[in-house]
Amino acid sequence: MTTSTTEVLVGGVVLAAAIAFGAYAITTTGFSMGGDGYPLTASFRSLEGVSVGSDVRLAGVKVGTVSEIALNPETYRADMSLTMERGVQVPDDSAILISSEGLLGGNFVEISPGGSMFYLEAGDEIVDTQGSVSLISLLLKYVGGGSN
């Protein structure tokens, strides 16, 4: 009898620790189950280095995630859908660009807010976009004397 009671107590403690660890991991990573944001879209010349799940940042603070990337067969541009957090309002004249975390860091999507008094609504498109710049092409231009 005491062996089964001890096993049940130890199992309960292990289960409680696993749940606590899972809750801690979810809150510290900013993971969300979805449904708490609104969608926006943008079209880029190049989305090199950005993938589904990449951060969307405003003033260095994560305010959303990239939810979908697809090639537009008519314009040959990369169409991106992103999910913004509910409390974040983005002026309708804002720009969106692909930024790098450094020379060896990954890329993320950055929103540069405009000064408009009107805000983007769910499903709106951010028109002012700047795609990613390839580090290799920049190095080739530098080595080639900038003539390319």
Rank of each mutant, 00 (worst) to 15 (best):
L138F: 00
G106W: 02
M33E: 09
V143L: 13
S116D: 08
A25F: 14
G131F: 06
V52G: 02
E85Y: 13
V52I: 02
G49I: 11
I69D: 04
I111K: 10
S46D: 02
T29Y: 14
E85T: 13
T41F: 07
T29A: 11
R86P: 02
G105R: 12
S32E: 14
S81Y: 02
T75M: 00
F118Q: 14
L103Y: 04
D93W: 02
A122E: 10
A95L: 03
V127T: 07
S134M: 04
T41K: 12
S99I: 04
I136G: 07
N72G: 01
A18C: 15
A42R: 00
G144F: 02
L58P: 08
T2C: 10
G35A: 10
E125D: 14
G145A: 08
G105F: 09
T65Q: 13
P39M: 05
T28G: 07
E7K: 15
A17H: 07
K141H: 03
F31K: 12
R77S: 04
D128F: 00
I69P: 01
S32F: 10
L58A: 08
G131R: 05
F44L: 10
V143C: 08
V143K: 14
I26V: 14
D36T: 14
S94I: 01
G35P: 13
G114T: 05
E85H: 15
G87L: 05
G144S: 06
A42S: 02
E110T: 07
G145P: 03
M84D: 04
T75H: 05
N148Q: 09
G22V: 12
D92N: 08
S32Y: 11
S100D: 00
E121N: 13
A95C: 08
L9D: 11
V56A: 00
G131I: 03
V90C: 05
M33I: 10
M1E: 06
G115S: 12
S67V: 02
I69Y: 00
V14D: 06
S134P: 04
R86M: 10
F31L: 15
T27A: 15
T28W: 14
I111T: 09
G30N: 03
E121P: 00
A78V: 01
S99P: 08
A23M: 14
I96L: 00
L135G: 07
G34H: 10
M117Q: 12
L40H: 08
T83V: 14
Y24K: 13
M33T: 15
A20C: 15
T5P: 05
V13M: 15
V88P: 00
G60M: 08
V133R: 03
D55G: 12
G145Q: 01
G49W: 06
P73T: 01
G49K: 07
L58C: 10
D79F: 00
L71K: 00
E125R: 14
G53M: 07
E85R: 15
Y76G: 00
L40T: 04
G49Y: 07
S46W: 04
S51I: 13
Y24A: 13
L104W: 08
